[in-house]
C-alpha cells in the first residue's frame, strides 16, 4: 500500500498508528473550505500527514494583510490567487499526495460538485452563512464536518458527526454579524491543529472526538474550556435532513 519513500516520510507517524493507519490516511479525501488562516494550518498539516487527496477552495487573491497568519502564502504570492499559491505550497510540502486547488466561491449550487470524492469537510471559513452550507452538505452526505473559528486570541472547535451529534446549526442557531475580525496567526495554529487531529482520529477510528463538545480556546489567559452541545430536536437543518428517528436509533446503539 505504501511505497518505500512514503514509509520513510511517515515513519514517525507509523510508530503511532502503523502502516495500516497511514494507508487509511492515504485513502482519505479532505475538502478544505478556505485557504486563509485556518485553511493554511489545516492544509499544511493534512498534506504533511499524508491525507491522500486534498481539495482546497478559495475565491480570493493573496493580500499583504493576509500574511501575518495565512502561512500557505508567502510575500512573493501577494496578488496571486490563493488557490494557486496553496497548490504550490502543498505540493512542495508533499508531492506524494493529490492536491486540487479551486478558485471558487462555495454556494448552495456548487457544494455537491465541490465535495465529490471527499469524505471529510474541514471548516476554514470566515463566516457562518457559508458554514451553514457546509453543515447541510455534511448532513445530506452523512460525512463529518470539523468546525473551527477564531477571533483575535480566541477560538472554538467542535466535530459534527451526522446522525450522531448536534449539528453546527444546533450549536449556533443564528449567525453573528460579518465583521473584519482581528486575527493572530498562532490562534489559527491552535484551532486548525485541533481540527486536523480530529480528522486524523476520525479516519483512523480511535481516540475521543469533540462530539457534542464545543472546545473554547482563550489564548489571552492560555486556557481551554469546553461546553456541552446538545441536539436541538427542532433544528431546521438536521431534523429536516436526517430526521429524529435516525438520531434516536443511533443514541440507542
Amino acid at each position: 500500500m505504501l511505497n518505500d519513500l512514503e514509509k520513510k516520510r511517515y515513519s514517525r507517524q507509523i510508530r503511532l498508528f502503523g502502516e495500516d493507519g497511514q494507508a487509511k490516511l492515504k485513502k482519505a479525501g479532505a475538502f478544505i473550505a478556505g485557504a486563509g488562516g485556518l485553511g493554511s494550518v489545516i492544509s499544511i498539516y493534512m498534506a504533511a500527514a499524508g491525507f491522500g487527496k486534498i481539495r482546497i477552495v478559495d475565491c480570493d487573491s493573496v493580500e499583504l494583510s493576509n500574511l501575518n497568519r495565512q502561512v500557505l502564502h508567502w510575500s512573493d504570492d501577494v496578488g496571486r490567487s490563493k488557490a494557486r499559491s496553496a497548490k504550490d505550497t502543498l505540493e512542495g510540502i508533499n508531492p506524494e499526495i493529490e492536491v486540487e486547488a479551486l478558485e471558487e466561491t462555495i454556494s448552495k449550487e456548487n457544494i455537491d460538485q465541490l465535495l465529490s470524492g471527499c469524505s471529510l469537510i474541514m471548516d476554514a471559513m470566515d463566516n457562518f452563512s457559508t458554514r451553514y452550507i457546509l453543515n447541510k452538505a455534511a448532513l445530506q452526505k452523512k460525512i463529518p464536518l470539523f468546525h473551527g473559528a477564531i477571533c483575535g486570541y480566541q477560538g472554538q472547535a467542535t466535530t459534527v458527526i451526522p446522525g450522531k451529534t448536534a449539528c453546527l446549526r444546533c450549536t449556533f442557531p443564528r449567525a453573528p454579524p460579518v465583521t473584519t475580525f482581528p486575527a493572530l496567526g498562532s490562534t489559527c495554529g491552535v484551532i486548525g491543529s485541533i481540527q486536523v487531529t480530529e480528522a486524523v482520529k476520525y479516519v483512523l477510528g480511535f481516540g475521543g472526538l469533540l462530539e457534542n463538545r464545543l472546545m473554547l480556546w482563550d489564548g489571552l489567559s492560555c486556557s481551554m474550556d469546553e461546553v456541552a452541545c446538545m441536539r436541538n430536536p427542532g433544528c431546521q437543518d438536521c431534523s429536516a435532513l436526517i430526521g429524529d428517528a435516525n438520531y434516536k436509533q443511533e443514541m440507542s446503539k
Binding site: D126, A149, I150, C151, Q156, A175, P176, T179, C188
Partner: peptide, 8 residues
C-alpha cells in the same frame, strides 16, 4: 454566556 467566534 458566550458569543460565537466566526473568523477563519
Amino acid at each position: 454566556i458566550l458569543p460565537p467566534v466566526a473568523g477563519g
